[in-house]
């Protein structure tokens, strides 16, 4: 199957590959996977606690080209967004941007799941911190 130019671009030159300290209270980590194809995707966001804006995003994905491209694009989309804006990102945006064929749509769904998991993790962390402060 032929990949679109955009997928190939992200695949051969992935943006924001790497990882951040998951114990950092400002870092949210999302780990998702699809057993059927064996993909695993880790996506992390670093949030400025004062502004609620995502300052950095990193990912590491083991999977097919579309899964790598989807998560690479996701990290680009995340930077500069607020956590709530990030939660509103839909997989269809990734599908359109990368021109993913129907058989690869699940890769974009995985990326959306990863974003949600990372933000949820960040929110849980801050909620816990606040609870600790009030105690």
């Amino acid at each position: 199957m032929a990949y679109s130019d955009k997928v190939l671009d992200h695949y051969s030159n992935p943006r924001n590959v790497g990882s951040m300290d998951k114990n950092d209270p400002n870092v949210g980590t999302g780990m998702v996977g699809a057993p059927e194809c064996g993909d695993v995707m880790k996506l992390q966001v670093k949030v400025n606690p004062d502004t609620g804006i995502i300052e950095d995003a990193k990912f590491k994905t083991f999977g097919c080209g579309s899964a790598i491209a989807s998560s690479s694009l996701a990290t680009e989309m995340l930077k500069g967004k607020t956590v709530d804006e990030a939660l509103a990102i839909k997989n269809t945006e990734i599908v359109n941007e990368l021109a993913l064929p129907p058989v690869k749509i699940h890769c974009s769904v995985l990326a959306e799941d990863a974003i949600k998991a990372a933000i949820t993790n960040y929110k849980e962390k801050t909620a816990k911190e606040q609870a600790a402060v009030t105690l």
């Binding site: 780990m31 998702v32 996977g33 699809a34 057993p35 059927e36 699940h106 769904v109 995985l110 799941d113 998991a117």
Partner: peptide, 8 residues
């Protein structure tokens, strides 16, 4: 067929 991470 359609398993996602919520099942893992």
């Amino acid at each position: 067929g359609e398993q996602r991470s919520k099942d893992v």
